[in-house]
């Protein structure tokens, strides 16, 4: 589930507050959004790819927080890794034209 909002990367655009389908984040008056309802996170990773500065990290475990730190996620280059795999950049969509899924369907 969602575990990290990186204050050093976040530009306080509050896009995550808007796009999270589970309404996990709350905007704050003078700072970065907070994870207000972590328990509601469905671990869909979509907030990460909509974030224009790769400031969010969703850990792989859906049943509860893993406790991963920003330093570890940073060192392992996990911030923005899903967006890069898709071809999304700075919160903008991209890469679907290179999706090779049709080859998988043939193999299937």
């Amino acid at each position: 589930m969602i575990e990290i909002v990186s204050a050093t990367r976040c530009v306080q655009c509050d896009i995550c507050v808007k796009v999270c389908p589970a309404n996990v984040f709350d905007a704050t008056d003078n700072g970065v959004p907070v994870i207000a309802r972590q328990e509601d996170c469905q671990t869909c990773f979509l907030c990460e790819i909509y974030c224009p500065t790769d400031a969010l990290y969703v850990a792989e475990f859906a049943e509860g927080p893993t406790g991963i730190t920003e330093a570890e996620a940073d060192a392992r280059q996990l911030f923005g890794s899903y967006a890069r795999a898709l071809g999304w950049k700075r919160g903008k969509a991209g890469g679907s034209e290179f999706d090779p899924t049709h080859r998988i369907r043939v193999a299937q």
Binding site: F45, Y82, A85, L86, F98, D99, P100, T101, R103, I104, A107
Partner: peptide, 8 residues
Amino acid sequence: WLRQGQPN
């Protein structure tokens, strides 16, 4: 192809 096509 799996990695690229099914990144999630």
